[in-house]
Nucleic acid binder design. Structure first.
Lengths: 167, 167
DNA sequence: TATTGTTATACTCTATAACTATA
DNA sequence: TATAGTTATAGAGTATAACAATA
């Protein structure tokens, strides 16, 4: 009866994508940590840097997190001096989140972290493999309606103590 | 000063892997849900089904979760009648986790969920792209020391209410 | 003394609901 | 009445520390 098969999912794309994606998110969180940035803070900072002032609600929608959680996130960035709140003139209920000069500098440092990470991830691939991986991932991302940017689930990826790994 | 560049990371492999991986883990959790299985339960069940009886400590090590958390997980599986605890004869501190007949049936149903998910993930790819994606992911997984199987971070991926998505 | 399973506690992140001020 | 921001509360999930039984 009990067929002890040798892990039927080792070559599964679903498992490979989940596992490699999770490890990637973990590495991303690790390279961001020395800058004092969480992945969510990275998302807000680079979003504002790239697309200009936005209300907290707009940022929350764009990043896929709830506006309730955006409050503390903006508090954190404001406390670090990277952004500031400014009352929106046409809608006085809303705050525009404005990048400061220090915030712009931090956004540049944060974005500069990405290319080395990409290189590290693709270190074992041939240039042709690297290109085809990028292309295939872009196709899958579009097919699955995955928005480019920082995602709510990504925010979960924190460095893991992980005392496990086969004793 | 503030250079409003158009999202410099849209083509980044790190972002593509993180985002597609997270979405994949979410889809995985969703197809498991109708079976009454969480991703961690899937991990324990298929691990025991594939590799035979193991102690809770061995399972915890193999799946990368803490033995403290394994207690409740085994409680859950035992409550569902899929596994049972049996005192290890040579080490009476430990329990061997044994698959029941119902557990074996559930493990087969759980494993059967993977191929359709793989097909769905690769639906937009050509066969050649599908193959090269699998190959590249395997290479990266090996390079990053990602073990095949269920990972602790994967367990995080739960269906998200996500009322966001651009309002 | 070290290890297995267990329980308890604290901390983080998130989900939900409410409140205020504006629209 | 609806929405932006805020706050509070409760629920998951996990990390840490302890404990009893056994090695």
């Amino acid at each position: 009866m009990s067929s002890t098969a040798p892990t039927p999912y080792a070559g599964s794309i679903a498992f490979l994508l989940s596992a490699v994606g999770a490890r990637t998110a973990q590495l991303f969180a690790q390279v961001l940590e020395p800058l004092g940035l969480t992945t969510r803070a990275f998302g807000v900072l680079t979003n504002v840097a790239a697309h200009g002032p936005q209300t907290q609600q707009e940022l929350a929608d764009g990043l896929g997190i709830h506006r309730n959680n955006m409050v503390g996130l903006v508090d954190e960035l404001e406390g670090a001096g990277w952004v500031r709140r400014r009352r929106n003139q046409s809608d006085r209920r809303a705050f525009d989140i404005i990048l400061t000069a220090r915030g712009a500098a931090m956004a540049r440092r944060a974005n500069a972290v990405i290319p080395p990470l990409d290189q590290r991830l693709a270190a074992a691939l041939t240039p042709a493999q690297h290109r085809s991986l990028s292309a295939a991932l872009s196709v899958v991302a579009a097919d699955l309606d995955v928005q480019p940017g920082v995602h709510p689930w990504l925010a979960r990826a924190r460095p893991n103590h992980a005392g496990a790994q086969r004793s």
